[in-house]
């Protein structure tokens, strides 16, 4: 049952991913991307990670994609002229197929040893997914977390400085 559901959603995800690159109008591409993010959120739910799913929808679908849509609308990007870019299609197709086979090969080659880390599906069930992420972020990975937030702050200040004509 879960497997059928997985394949169904995977099909939708790949389909909308395909739409992103094939659509003529940038707005439709953006909508395809939103749909892909939704499918990813469903995968997170299926992996027992509801917090990640909610954050995925909230941050990517709810904020970032809205901004992208906003920019597309403001710049009024029309439908792209129907140009056919054919050069390099064959080589990139071969390269992607090779990468796919590589990944498949390494996945098949790997062996499950049965060793378990601290966090198993049992601890996730008993402690709670959100609590575990919170603890990890604010104890073990506090420094990277803070550095990431400083990076974001720098990016915001930089954007304001670049965009503002005179202070």
């Amino acid at each position: 049952m879960e497997l059928i559901f997985f394949y169904l959603i995977a099909l939708v995800a790949i389909g909308s991913g395909f739409l992103v690159i094939r659509c003529q109008s940038p707005v439709n591409s953006a909508l395809g991307l939103v749909n892909t993010f939704f499918c990813l959120a469903i995968f997170y739910v299926m992996l027992h990670a509801p917090f990640m799913a909610a954050i995925q929808i909230m941050v990517y679908a709810g904020a970032i994609m809205v901004l992208i849509l906003f920019v597309i609308m403001l710049l009024n990007l029309g439908t792209e002229a129907r140009k056919r870019y054919t050069h390099g299609v064959v080589w990139s197709a071969i390269a992607s197929l090779l990468v796919l086979f590589n990944v498949m090969y390494f996945i098949k080659r790997g062996r499950v040893t049965g060793a378990e880390g601290d966090i198993t599906s049992f601890t996730v069930e008993s402690v709670g997914h959100t609590e575990l992420i919170g603890k990890a972020l604010f104890t073990e990975f506090l420094l990277p977390f803070e550095i990431a937030s400083i990076l974001l702050l720098v990016a915001i200040v930089g954007a304001v400085v670049l965009a503002k004509k005179e202070v």
Binding site: I57, G62, M73
Partner: peptide
Amino acid sequence: DLNVGVLYILAFAGLGIYGIVL
């Protein structure tokens, strides 16, 4: 009863905007 109920609400409340923008 979702154990991330409030986040779920916030996430979907943010999606209503697509309708208006589109």
